[in-house]
Design a protein around this nucleic acid. Structure first.
Length: 488
RNA sequence: GAGCCUGUAGCUCAGCCUGGCUAGAGCACCUGACUUUUAAUCAGGGUGUCGAAGGUUCGAAUCCUUCCAGGCUCACCA
């Protein structure tokens, strides 16, 4: 930027850049063909000892010794030491090397050897500057600690903190194995609209946007659910989507406005099948990615060994509160919740009462993977009603470490019942609940053509990755979490 | 949205309670020495709008107010 004031550190690097350009040395190179990456050289030392290799990477540390120098180079696979000697590379290249800054990206060719200190090293014959770095990197020993800078300048975090990079590599692998599992089980990956005229499929406040040419308001999706089920109507029998949802809610260590969900639907299946699938999918992924079943998470230790506990919500609530809600009326249930010391201001039905007792008094205690099933109808507008008890639905959630990881049900495929449920939601909306569902006539229309009975499942990918990588904040598993822009 | 905490050099941090000489350290950087070091070492050099703006005071990084950004907890949610 013209006219910008540089402090001395930045000024010196600009001057070095000018010097290079004056000498006709390219500061920003092009294609550079590598024969190996750092990790390969280290792992394959037995075979590579004495051979010539070509690598490239970022200069991370320099240890000059007059007419010879050591340096550490970091590439995508790890780090390796290089040894640059005046009478090996010649005056000109040695001068260039001495001028290099930590942070510069270089390519080099040289011979693999081991120093007398036992460090696997490349004795450089030629080196090429590939990208001049104009800003100093964070401190080599402590790295980048400032949590705000780590999120705002993730590139620096990734350069400096290998454990942070590791988390994102694991995230990628977790998602890869989930895809592999589902693809291997006959599921078809599809993409449904992110911009929707009606934001349905969940209870949440949406982001609003606007399409100029169509002159219409659109919403960023809060869930793909209703579109995926339209695909069941269309004849796809096993579909899934792994993609972003957007919810215009508060930000916290467990919430980012955009987050990644897996949703899948399987025709002719029910929620018991979804429990089996959830367990198999997660166990398979854990085994593939980690080859380990025990995971520390904060103070807790999660054990993924199967079979996981399966308990009905009413049993779980009875077990932890001593209250038997099954036989209660609306008013009795609300009173019971009040007796448990909870605030009943927001609730008005039996189902909400049971759910409140569950969320407040049971959920936090479900540390090991636990399926809780048969959710109240009042809070489950898209789930099929339970035949034996119409106050309940065929719905379950999976809890690990007191957090909801998965939500699933036997899908409601009765268009008449679905319309009634939407209307009940509309009534809630009229009472001021702006997160309640809105009517989706086209979805009803689709159901009227006939949707096969089906099981559906949603898994919060970010939260699963948090658990599996022992990350305390969702921002630790999202590369670029939303932050307020900084003015200065 | 509420409560508590944080913001000092490029980075990691002292200093703030209890106001007082020119604001410190380590890394990084600059100059010099050093041809197998590895948080290399040795000698020398401080590079700063103390988050911002007001206020109190003879004097503010330090005390007060407001604002900005972030963190944690709670609320909402997944």
């Amino acid at each position: 930027m013209a006219g910008q004031d540089y402090n001395e550190l930045l000024q010196i690097r600009r001057e070095k850049l000018d010097e290079l350009l004056d000498k006709g040395i390219a500061a920003y190179g092009g294609r550079f063909e590598r024969s190996h990456v750092a990790r390969e050289v280290v792992n394959d030392f037995e075979h590579l000892d004495g051979t010539e290799v070509t690598l490239a990477g970022r200069l991370m540390a320099k240890r000059g010794h007059g007419k010879a120098s050591f340096a550490d180079i970091q590439d995508g696979s790890g780090r390796i030491q290089i040894y640059v000697k005046l009478n090996e590379v010649g005056q000109e290249q040695y001068e260039l090397f001495k001028k290099l800054d930590i942070g510069d990206i270089i390519g080099f060719r040289g011979t693999v050897f081991k120093t007398r200190m036992g460090e696997i090293t490349v004795a450089v014959k030629t080196l090429t500057l590939l990208a001049k770095s104009l800003k100093p990197l964070p401190e080599k020993w402590h790295g980048l600690r400032d949590i705000e800078l780590r999120y705002r300048q993730r590139y620096l975090d990734l350069i400096m903190n290998p454990e942070s990079k590791k988390v994102f590599e694991l995230r990628s692998r977790i998602i890869r194995y989930i895809r592999r599992y589902l693809n291997g089980h006959g599921f078809l990956e599809v993409e449904t609209p992110m911009m929707q005229p009606i934001a349905g499929g969940a209870t949440a406040r949406p982001f609003v946007t606007y399409h100029n040419a169509l002159d219409m308001q659109l919403y960023l999706r809060i869930a793909p659910e209703l579109y995926l089920k339209r695909l069941l109507v269309g004849g796809f029998e096993k579909v899934y989507e792994i993609n972003r949802n957007f919810r215009n809610e508060g930000i916290s260590t467990k919430h980012n406005p955009e987050f990644t969900m897996l949703e899948l639907y399987q025709a002719y299946a029910d929620y018991h099948d979804m429990m089996d699938l959830t367990e198999n999918l997660i166990v398979h992924t854990v085994r593939q990615v980690f080859d380990n079943f025990e995971f520390p998470y904060g103070e807790e230790k999660i054990n993924f060994a199967t079979p996981w506990t399966r308990v009905t919500m009413l049993d779980a609530v009875r077990e932890h509160t001593g209250k038997e809600f099954a036989a209660m009326s609306d008013t009795e249930a609300i009173q019971a919740v009040k007796d448990l010391g909870l605030d009943t201001e927001e609730i008005s039905s039996w189902g909400e009462a049971v759910n409140l007792a569950f969320e407040e008094l049971v959920e936090p205690k479900l540390i090991q993977p636990t399926f809780v099933y048969d959710y109240p109808l009042d809070i489950s507008p898209l789930a099929k009603k339970k035949e034996e008890d119409p106050r309940l639905t065929y719905r379950f959630e999976l809890f690990i470490c007191g957090r909801e990881i998965a939500n699933a049900f036997s899908e409601l495929n009765d268009p008449i019942d679905q319309r009634r449920r939407f209307e009940a939601q509309l009534a809630k909306r009229a009472r001021g609940d702006d997160e309640a569902h809105v009517m989706d006539e086209d979805y009803i229309n689709a159901l009227e053509y006939g949707m096969p009975p089906a099981g559906g499942l949603g898994i919060g990918i970010d939260r699963l990755v948090m658990l599996l990588t022992n990350s305390p904040s969702i921002r630790d598993v999202i590369l670029f979490p939303l932050l307020r822009p900084r003015e200065d």
